[in-house]
């Protein structure tokens, strides 16, 4: 198992860099001087048991945690897009207006229509959000995230509220869009399979620190039946304390 070669990326300006990042709620320290570097265009998944601080880290990187006490250095790119567990479409804006919300410059509508086409929602631009299915709403949210051409895409369990079938489709779509646009991605998830299938690097957060930093060296699209997929999966499940480590042969 190769750990991530952290020393190689110092040449390029990283997409995310945290140095001794601390976040605490009262006396409870959630992030303990956490150091993390994500290279431009790197697809990173962040795993961790609930309460391990995944969301706290993501919200810190997204700079949504004004009210949380903390310290440390944090560098993020200028164009950051966020995607949440709920699609968070404004119910009073039509789908296209949701996608291009806050988009500046000419040609915003055209770019929005292109983004909708990319996520398979061509022709739904005039619909109201409540007229879309859960999966379609999440697609629209993805279009809203990508139309901004982000250097960094932060996703907080974006498929958590979807049914299993829709989730499989969304995995394929996300990976496809990632390969076309190449933003750095930080995907928070509690699904080990999802992490191994989508990400090229998987981090495990444990008690406020990164305990495992694993590069996934598999060609895409990945099959869950692949023996090496299972190997990565077992390593991560062990790191998460779900299964006992296999006895050494």
């Amino acid at each position: 198992m190769a750990t991530h070669p952290g020393g190689l990326i110092t040449e390029v300006r990283p997409a995310v860099r945290t140095k001794q990042l601390v976040r605490k709620f009262g006396d409870r320290i959630i992030l303990k001087e956490l150091d993390l570097t994500i290279a431009p265009g790197e697809f990173t998944a962040l795993l961790g048991r609930s309460g391990s601080g995944k969301s706290t880290l993501l919200r810190a990187v997204a700079r949504l945690d004004h009210t949380v006490e903390g310290s440390g250095e944090l560098t993020v790119p200028e164009r950051v897009s966020l995607s949440f567990q709920d699609s968070r479409l404004l119910p009073w804006l039509r789908v296209l207006d949701n996608v291009i919300l806050g988009l500046r410059g000419p040609g915003a509508r055209e770019r929005g229509l292109t983004a909708l086409e990319e996520v398979g929602l061509a022709g739904r631009d005039r619909s109201w959000p409540h007229e879309l299915s859960g999966g379609e709403q999440q697609r629209a949210a993805l279009a809203r995230a990508l139309v901004r051409e982000p250097e960094l895409l932060l996703a907080d369990e974006p498929f958590g509220a979807l049914d299993a079938l829709t989730r499989i489709k969304m995995h394929g779509l996300l990976r496809e869009l990632y390969e076309r646009h190449r933003p750095a991605v930080l995907l928070v998830t509690h699904d080990v399979d999802e992490a191994v299938e989508l990400a090229d690097r998987v981090l495990v957060l444990e008690e406020g620190l990164i305990s495992v930093d694993l590069a996934i060296d598999l060609p895409t699209p990945r099959s869950r039946r692949d023996a090496r997929f299972q190997e990565y999966r077992d390593t991560l499940l062990t790191a998460l304390g779900v299964t006992q480590p296999p006895p050494t042969a």
């Binding site: 997204a62 949504l64 950051v80 966020l82 949440f84 709920d86 968070r88 404004l90 806050g102 901004r148």
Partner: peptide
Amino acid sequence: RYVELAEGLD
């Protein structure tokens, strides 16, 4: 959540 979204979208 909408306020958060608006902040996220700058």
